[in-house]
Simulated assay, not measured.
Amino acid sequence: MEITSIVVGRAAMNMAISEDRQDEKEIQKRLNARDIRSVAVDFGGEYLVSVKKIIERAVVAAERQGLVSANHVGEGAVAGATHAALEQITPKAVGLNVGGKIGIARHGEHICVAVYFGVGVLNLNEVAVGLAHRSLASVEE
């Protein structure tokens, strides 16, 4: 089966909706068997003041797990996709707190970032999901 951007997006979303570290590791193992590299990172805080920190966490996690190179090409792809995914949840999240997970997956030239957050105040939460894709060379220069 050809691994397309749809497949990589699904992988990123699976990482984002994983319930705990054990679940993450099991999903990662299944994805690695298909040559899809992945990582997930938790996040929580006030949405608007945290957008920069969310993007930074995504970039650092992707670099540490070897999904992208530590240069402007790899970092830019992750940062751009993360920002685009966050734009999808901004209408629900402005002025509120978020908590959840960022999932990132890569295969070849496809990299996807998924965000899965609870949004709200106290226990009055809504759920928000965002997903974005970027293309980059299989080996960044």
Rank of each mutant, 00 (worst) to 15 (best):
A70G: 14
L48R: 10
N71W: 02
G74E: 01
A93W: 05
K92Q: 11
S38T: 01
S50R: 07
M1F: 09
G108K: 11
D42K: 03
G44T: 08
A84R: 06
A58E: 10
V113P: 02
V68M: 04
A105F: 09
G100S: 09
I104T: 07
K53D: 14
G44K: 08
G100L: 12
S69T: 12
Q28H: 12
K25T: 14
A93Y: 09
I111A: 07
S138V: 12
G103I: 01
L124M: 12
D23W: 11
K25Q: 13
L124G: 12
A12W: 06
R64P: 03
K92R: 15
V60H: 12
V113I: 02
V68P: 04
V127Q: 14
D20I: 05
Q65V: 10
E126V: 02
H72I: 07
L96M: 11
V113T: 09
N125W: 14
A114T: 00
S18C: 08
E56K: 10
I54M: 06
A40K: 03
Q28W: 10
M13N: 08
G74T: 04
E24Q: 09
V59I: 02
T4R: 09
I54W: 06
L136A: 08
E46R: 08
D23F: 11
A81I: 00
S5P: 09
V119I: 02
A33H: 10
K92E: 13
S50E: 07
E109L: 05
E2W: 11
V139T: 06
V60K: 06
N14E: 14
A114D: 03
R30Q: 15
I27D: 11
R106A: 12
K29M: 08
C112Q: 04
T90F: 06
I27S: 07
C112M: 11
R10F: 15
A93C: 09
T4Y: 00
N97M: 12
I17R: 05
A62N: 03
E56M: 11
E19L: 14
E126T: 08
Y116L: 08
E56N: 09
E126C: 12
A40N: 04
I111D: 03
G108L: 08
Q88W: 04
L131M: 01
S5N: 12
K52Y: 12
A61M: 02
V94C: 07
R34I: 03
S135W: 07
I104N: 01
S135I: 06
V78F: 02
G120C: 05
L67S: 03
R21A: 15
